[in-house]
Design a protein around this nucleic acid. Structure first.
Length: 112
DNA sequence: TAATTGACCGATC
DNA sequence: AGATCGGCCAATT
């Protein structure tokens, strides 16, 4: 058990809570996992997640709802497909802002 | 020990 | 809209 494994698990736990039809940014996932400035550690952590865990890794996007993979990366299209299964279609490489769970989501809930 | 490298982020040009 | 840049932080080389 390394320190990193513990952090990975915290990240996986957060990702597992993302509801179908919604997405969350790397930075936000990191923040909720107790890593306020650990956005860069989320991607690698997802890559280390066991397949058996069936983690919804595709619901984790870059800031502003953009897919983090380069367009030519094989993972890009796979992520697009998985998102479409969730009912999320990308427009110009991004999902609608209203589908991104942000730190302000609670405020919007309260304010309407 | 120092340099490099990311599935990042926000500001700026 | 797209490219660049500095900041970020830990794993890897």
């Amino acid at each position: 058990m390394s320190q990193r494994d513990t952090i990975d698990q915290a990240i996986w736990k957060v990702v597992a809570t993302i509801p179908k039809g919604k997405v969350m940014a790397y930075g936000e996932v990191a923040r909720r996992a107790g890593l306020p400035r650990g956005a860069r550690r989320v991607g690698p952590a997802l890559g280390r997640a066991p397949e058996a865990m069936k983690l919804p890794w595709h619901r984790v996007l870059g800031a502003g709802g953009k897919i983090a993979f380069p367009r030519d990366h094989p993972g890009y299209q796979r992520q697009v497909d998985l998102l479409s299964v969730d009912g999320l279609l990308l427009v110009k490489g991004k999902v609608a802002a209203s589908d991104v769970i942000t730190a302000q989501s609670m405020d919007e809930l309260l304010w309407g």
